[in-house]
Amino acid sequence: MTDDRQGITLTHLQRLEAESIHIMREVVAEAERPVMLYSVGKDSAVMLHLAAKAFYPAKPPFPLLHVDTTWKFRAMYEMRERMARELGFDLIVHKNPEALARGINPFDHGSAVHTDLWKTEGLKQALDKFGFDAAFGGARRDEEKSRAKERIFSFRSAQHRWDPKNQRPELWHLYNARKNKGESLRVFPISNWTELDIWQYIHLENIPIVPLYYSDVRPVVEREGALIMVDDDRFRLAPGEMPMMKSVRFRTLGCYPLTGAVESTAATLPEIIQEMLLTTTSERQGRVIDHDQTASMEKKKQEGYF
C-alpha cells in the first residue's frame, strides 16, 4: 500500500452531486420541517437518488410531497408508489379539495386554470397544512431564461410570494436559511444541472425512471400539432376520432392531456441521450403551459408555482 496522495480530478457529475448533497444536508440541518416535492419525472428521480445518498445509511429525514392533479399518466402513479416503497420515504399526496370538488380538468377549464388550481394552489395548501418551512424542488437554471438568476435558496413570504427584490445573495457554499415564522424556503438542489447532466447521471447511476421516457407504441391523437396520449377513458375524443398507434416517447412528464409526445424509436438510455443531442428543439417545447402567456414562467413563479 502506498500513500501517494495524488490529486484526483473529480468529474463534473461528481462535483454536481457533491453540491446537491451539500445543499440538502444544509436544509435538513437548518429547517424545522423540510419536505421534498416529488413530481415523478426524471429530475425528481435524480433528486430522490441524491437524497438517498446524502443521508445514507439513515433514511432521508423528510417526507415526499406529491401535489397531485389526478391527471398524471397512470405509469407515473405506479412509479410514485414503487419509489416511495423502495426508498422508504413517507409519501404525502395532496389533491386540492376545491379543484376536486369542482372537477377541474384540462378539457373544460384549459391548461392555465387547471395548472393554477391543482398545482399552484394545491402546493400552497399542502405546505400550509403540514407546516413545511422548506421545500425541495427540482427546477434547473438551464430550463428557461428566467430561471438562470434564481437562487438555490429561494425565500418566500408567509403568503408564498416570491419577491424578486428580496432575495439573498449566495456566496461560496454559504446559504442563509433563516426566516421568521410563517415564511418558507424553496430550495433547488439541482439548479446547476443541465438536461444532459441529468440523463448522464441517470445512465451512470442506473436510476429508475418512468417507462414513458422510453419509446413504445402508444395510442395518441394529434391536437394543435402536438401528439397527445390517450392514457385513460377520461380523454375526450372528437366524434369519429380514433387514437393512432405510434412509436412515441416523452421528454417531459406532466398531466397527460397537456403533455406532447415525440415520435421516436429510442428505447434505451443511450438512445435517448443520442436523440436529445441530435434533436433540434428544446425540452420545454413539449410543455403546453409555457406557451399560454408570454413571460409565463416569471409570472407563475411570483404566484408560488415552482
Partner: peptide, 16 residues
C-alpha cells in the same frame, strides 16, 4: 451518431 456509448464514456470524464 456513430457510437453513442463511446461518446458517453468520453463525457463522463469531463471536468467542471
Amino acid at each position: 451518431a456513430t457510437d453513442i456509448d463511446a461518446y458517453l464514456l468520453e463525457h463522463q470524464h469531463k471536468s467542471l
